[in-house]
Design a protein around this nucleic acid. Sequence first.
RNA 1: GGCCCCAUCGUCUAGUGGACCAGGACACAUGGUUCUCAACCAUGUAACAGGGGUUCAAUUCCCCUUGGGGCUACCA
Length: 489
Amino acid sequence: MHNNNADLKNVRVRFAPSPTGSLHLGNTRTAIFNWLFARHTGGKFILRIEDTDKERSTPESVNVIMESLKWLGLDWDEGPDAGGDFGPYYQMQRLDKYKKYIDILIKRNMAYPCFCAPERLAEMRHQMQKQKLPPRYDGKCKNLSKEEIECLTSQGIKHVLRFRVPYTGVTEFNDLVHGKICIDNSVLDDFVIVKSNAGPTYNFACVVDDIEMKITHIIRGDDHISNTPKQIAIYKALCCNSPEFAHIPLILGHDKAKLSKRHGAASPLEYRDMGYLPQVLVNFLTLLGWAPGDNREIMSGDELIESFSIEKINDRNAVFDSQKLDWMNGVYIRKMPLEELVDIALEELKKAELIKDTEEVDVNKISKIVGLIQERLKKFSEIPQLINYFFDKPVYEEKPVRKFLKKDGVSQMLQELCKVIEEEEPFDIETLESAVREFIEKKGLKPGDVIHPIRVALTGRAASPPIFDVMEILGKQTCLKRIRRFCIY
RNA sequence: GGCCCCAUCGUCUAGUGGACCAGGACACAUGGUUCUCAACCAUGUAACAGGGGUUCAAUUCCCCUUGGGGCUACCA
């Protein structure tokens, strides 16, 4: 029945999102696991668009999904815009293929038309739940005669096609993550395989495509476990081997519910826009439900590919922890070549209108500034806010101003300090620091008594990179101007 | 309600009967460094859900309870 688990020679896995919105982190990780598995085994990673939901599927969503995967570096070997021998890769373009299998099922009496109205079905389910019974189709149309079918059809009553599931016995399969899973067939439902609009449903189209596309391993979320027996039943009815199944745990939000759009920013593209690195997202998401087993956490794509295996996927749901994501992004940023970070910073600064598009930028100066905040960064979107005082007048925060500048004697002290600063030449870190420290000593003050007020005067806030570095970049005139503002109290 | 999956620090995890008074990471706390913040270093707080078995020995195997999650559509 099953393929040989050990046979990893011709692995073919697919990521099959439905284009009904943007990708969220749960789907994204499913894509990552499939991709890692394909790359680890030297197999093929296939992208298939499951657009059978006509009402909700949109081309925009397809674009977002593809853009997300591309940004993350998850390249597919077959799929829309990549081609392949098993296309088309949009389900709505594969209707003729489904037709072929539907005919087989009808011929074998494994499928039957059902004319029941949705209202009746809803009521039926409701009643069954009330009676503490598993909700399943009651079989009203199960044994309609040819004449009855013709009669109902001629009246123009819409119908769906239901699959005749086995009502006895047990469906058992070996899940690569969970081990043996058994489901009693008595809880299975004669589910719909063709809708009244003649479109295939997920559980049917998915099986047909996986057969036709020669998929060897289905790696998907835990939430599909309950679909699996139904799909296995179709494989059986079609006399086809089922692929291996690996149901990976779900990613949960902080409320411990399955991650969904409700949990705020959820799509990879949104993370991109917030200033996260794609490698970080891949690294972090892979670690949600999988671990190499040797305490490594920061891992490159190649290392992940090298170490990845389905056996090491764990079977517990994981809560998404954005704090740890931030930490990891910070680690990657610190390791990043400065020039690369400067390019990103330039973009952020333009976005924040701290520098103009047309402006000739002093890259040397910018890279000095960016160098000062590299180790302080968690995500790129923080850049403008962190260094705005280099480009604009500082925004003075009330608290530090009160604490460090509006204190007795401070303005007097700053006035004297300005005289010292004024004479400094060259205006660089070393000269500045020794002069200011000499000043501090001469006045019998503590370093903080002078440095804190300078910081607030120059940056507007209580925390900044080392102040002499800041002063050097700001230049003498700007420093004097900003400090003198506080000499008149 | 029915069925399924799961159960180690707050969070992500290591652990597959003895090497575990349970290891790593994030977060948190304290100290060091220091002009602040960050980074870095050191230290610390913190977990095997509960109850039964099996075994010479259970975090590890089995059962029950409890708890959490998922599915229960002419969505995927």
